[in-house]
Design a protein around this nucleic acid. Structure first.
Lengths: 327, 327
DNA sequence: TTGAAAGCGCTAACAA
DNA sequence: TTGTTAGCGCTTTCAA
């Protein structure tokens, strides 16, 4: 690979001039510029990002932290991040933490060691203390899940309100025995969605019953299945289920079918996220739509603004109830 | 952030010695080493990857090219790549091409400009000519989809044999009217799987009928739905369907259900890939399992071996027929 | 409008 | 066992 020196030599100018052409400085004579561009083409020259990075001490790389790449909820958000980042000249370094603290440390150090300019975190399992420590010195944006107590900017939806809407929809349909399949309540979104669930019940004078609330350990299909199995095993069965993610809901639906029951006739079901799969189940899944692409795009924009020294503020985006066949 | 100079000053040694401690050179006296490590700790020093990269002219970054992050088939492969890469000190730069040539160019230049050490490509839509050009100067591994004519190393399965197994399974079940829902045959895997399909039919003296073969434009659920709609609209309906991906198969299943028919009683169905969702449909999906994690791990190992100057060879991994409820 | 030269943070060849 | 020093490829200040 040719270097800037070789280009300079070939064009008969100094490296400084080549650099100026590369970076679109206006102070280069048209004639010189043409000479340099000619040399660049002939040598098939591509400027080394490494040299540039060292000099400018920025990498134009954004770290995106997710717990698992297999979760389709994150795919759309990443699409949004990538779209925005690319058009602004940034690339993204996708990092799966697997909820593993060792990996977390590796990724945090990538920012400390200047390999990445900032972190967009979507990982609810992340160590909040360390994240806040890091945020004191490096740009960090939280997306979807955030730390209530910290000072880190975030983009998210109103989870409590969204859950409230979901449950209210079930209540309006006449349901009184409504189960909640929630994930681990150490996650903020899980706590908030539970609050929304309880708020809706209380508003309609339906008692909140512990036996109708199930917390899963993880957020896979199987966890939804397991939850529904427990819920169906008891004497007092729910007539409707609100699952806090579509993946859980699909597991729930699977278990309902396996038990020989029908959705929505025997049990109504509502999910959360509007992942693309949710439209492929039979029946299709009623769900809460999160503006995932927009969330990602917004997070990337905030990050780049911050990198450019602009001041930024947290954003709460709108959700939407998508009524389909499962309710 | 502290630099190596500051550490050297604090420890009362030269920067070279600090560098030696950092890189585990054995020629450092234990006493000196302790002094340096002490200084590193006190200053909270983290070596700049940028400086190191420039000097060693390697970035320890691997570019992973996929057409779309939303396709769960790639998730597991990426898991495998990441697992291997991380343990060997590499990070991965995940790049979604969206089958967009402009993005392709951006990503190719990332290697030319030394920001990444090599490319693992899983993109069937990639420009083969440009990829082969690049491969002349930079390390490239193909994963899953590869170029038959080129000289680039790959890791894949035997698609023809796998498709043959799938269709033979349907034939053994007594089916004679077997449809093929294939993707665009400009992709190698699509051509190979079609060959396997035809081979199985011919072996059992079943005529290959054009009306039973449908090629989708894209590889989403909707394409599977659409394909099955066409297949059901004709007078002579198939009694079994082989879809070349689980996602297509799930779309097919959806359409069968929508039409009031049952799987597998009215129409048997087999997919391909064994994505996690294939176990969540009702009925569960019979499919061909690809060793996705292993493919990813293997691709990463090959890449790193190549980077270290070792010679590498293409690998064909085993597939497996997973019989579940849809057949 | 252009060139000379310093220096970003690091590694490694060479010398001591 | 350690230090001195050149230099990786680039950008940018200063001077011309």
């Amino acid at each position: 690979m040719a270097t800037i020196q070789e280009v300079a030599k070939k064009a008969g100018v100094s490296v400084a001039t080549v650099s100026r052409v590369l970076n679109d400085h206006t102070t280069v004579a048209e004639k010189t510029k043409i000479k340099v561009e000619q040399a660049i083409k002939e040598l098939n020259y591509e400027p080394s990002v490494l040299g540039r990075n060292l000099r400018t001490s920025e990498s134009k790389l954004l770290l995106v932290l997710i717990p698992s790449i297999s979760n389709p909820f994150y795919s759309e958000i990443i699409n949004g991040i990538e779209e925005t980042a690319l058009t602004k000249g940034y690339n993204i370094l996708l990092c799966e933490t697997d909820s593993n603290p060792a990996r977390e440390t590796i990724y945090f150090n990538l920012v400390r060691s200047k390999l990445a300019d900032g972190i967009i975190s979507m990982d609810p399992t992340i160590n909040k203390v360390k994240l806040n420590e890091l945020a004191a010195n490096y740009p960090i944006i939280q997306c979807s899940e955030y730390d209530q107590d910290g000072a880190i900017a975030y983009v998210a939806i109103n989870n409590e309100l969204a859950a409230y809407h979901a449950v209210k929809h079930l209540i309006k349909l006449g349901h009184k025995k409504i189960a909640l399949v929630n994930s681990d309540e150490r996650f903020l979104y899980a706590r908030e969605r539970r609050q929304g669930y309880e708020k809706a019940l209380k508003e309609f004078n339906i008692p909140v019953q512990k036996q109708f609330i199930y917390n899963t350990k993880d957020v896979g299909f199987e966890d939804g299945q397991q939850a529904m199995k427990k819920l169906l095993d008891q004497d007092n069965r729910p007539t409707a289920v609100f699952a806090v993610s579509d993946i859980l809901a699909i597991g729930v639906m699977k278990q309902i079918h396996t038990s020989g029951l029908q959705v929505p006739n025997d049990i109504a079901l509502i999910g959360f996220d509007k992942i693309s799969f949710s439209n492929m189940t039979h029946p299709t899944l009623t769900t809460i739509s999160q503006p995932m692409f927009k969330m990602g795009a917004m997070a990337a924009t905030m990050m780049i603004d911050k990198l450019q020294g602009k001041s930024i503020e947290s954003v709460v985006l709108e959700h939407e109830l998508i009524i389909r066949e499962s309710t």
